[in-house]
C-alpha cells in the first residue's frame, strides 16, 4: 500500500493525484445537482399528469415512465450521447464544434435527470394516491381549482410523505453519475480508473473513491433528513392516514 501516491504529481501536468480526484468529485457533484433539479421538476410534472383529470395526459405519463424505467441506464447514456446527435443534424453540427466536456456534461445531466424523473414521478403518484380521494374532494368542494388543489393541498402533503423514498432516489442519482464514465465525462469514477491505469495503484485509487462516494451518500442522506425534519408537520410523515 502506498498512500503517498495521492500527493505525487501526475505524469503530464503539474497537478497532484488528489487534485485530479477532487476535480472529478466536482464534476460528479455538479452533474448530480443539475440532474436532481431536472428530475424533481419533470418528475413532479409527470406525477401530476399521472393522477390528474386528463386521461390523455395520464396515458402519456405512463408511457414516459415505462420508457425511462425499462431501458438500462448505460443504454440511455449511449442514446443521448451517440444516437441523438445522429438523428438531429443541427445538434450534430453543434456537438462537433462544442467543447467535448460540455457536451458530455449536458448529455449526462439530461440522461440522469430524465432517468431519475421517471422514478420520482412514480413516487409522486404513489404519494398523491396515498392521500385518497377525500383530500382532493375536500379541496374541490371549497371551490379550489384543480391547479390550486395540487399547489396548496396535494403536493405539500405528498412531498412530506415521500421524503424517505426521495432521499434514496437522490443517493441513487449520485451513484448513477458513475455511469457517465461510459461517455467519457471526467467525473470521480473516470478519474479513479485513470489514476489506477496510469499508476497501477488500483487499490488506493478505488479505496479513495469508495470513501468519497460513502461520504457523499451520507451527506445527501443527512441533508434530506434535515429538510424532512424542518418541514415536518404533526400527523404527516408517511403516516398521514393514521390520523383518522
Amino acid at each position: 500500500m502506498n498512500w503517498q501516491i495521492f500527493l505525487e504529481t501526475m505524469p503530464e501536468g503539474d497537478a497532484a493525484w488528489w487534485e485530479m480526484l477532487a476535480s472529478g468529485l466536482g464534476w460528479t457533484l455538479a452533474c448530480a445537482a443539475c440532474a436532481w433539479v431536472i428530475a424533481l421538476a419533470a418528475g413532479t410534472g409527470i406525477g401530476i399528469a399521472r393522477t390528474g383529470a386528463s386521461r390523455a395526459a395520464a396515458r402519456a405519463a405512463i408511457i414516459y415512465v415505462e420508457l425511462f424505467r425499462n431501458i438500462p441506464l448505460i443504454v440511455q447514456f449511449f442514446l443521448w450521447y451517440f444516437v441523438l446527435p445522429e438523428l438531429c443534424a443541427p445538434l450534430k453540427r453543434w456537438v462537433i464544434e462544442a467543447d467535448p466536456s460540455v457536451v458530455q456534461f449536458l448529455a449526462a445531466t439530461s440522461c440522469l435527470g430524465l432517468f431519475t424523473s421517471a422514478r420520482i414521478a412514480e413516487q409522486v403518484r404513489a404519494g398523491i394516491e396515498s392521500l385518497g380521494r377525500g383530500q382532493r374532494q375536500a379541496a374541490r368542494a371549497m371551490g379550489l381549482s384543480e391547479a390550486q388543489c395540487y399547489r396548496h393541498v396535494l403536493l405539500p402533503v405528498t412531498f412530506r410523505v415521500i421524503m424517505p423514498p426521495l432521499t434514496s432516489e437522490l443517493m441513487n442519482l449520485v451513484k448513477n453519475t458513475a455511469v457517465a464514465y461510459s461517455i467519457g465525462l471526467a467525473e470521480l469514477f473516470f478519474r479513479t480508473r485513470e489514476m489506477g491505469e496510469i499508476t497501477f495503484r488500483y487499490f488506493e485509487a478505488f479505496a479513495a473513491a469508495t470513501l468519497a462516494y460513502m461520504v457523499i451518500a451520507l451527506a445527501a442522506n443527512r441533508a434530506m433528513r434535515f429538510i424532512e425534519r424542518r418541514i415536518a408537520v404533526p400527523g404527516v410523515a408517511g403516516t398521514a392516514r393514521s390520523a383518522h
Binding site: 451513484k175 448513477n176 458513475a178 469514477f189 478505488f206 469508495t210 460513502m214
Partner: peptide
C-alpha cells in the same frame, strides 16, 4: 452506498 460500477471494478 457505493456505485455498482465501482463495485464491479
Amino acid at each position: 452506498s457505493v456505485p455498482l460500477l465501482l463495485v464491479i471494478f
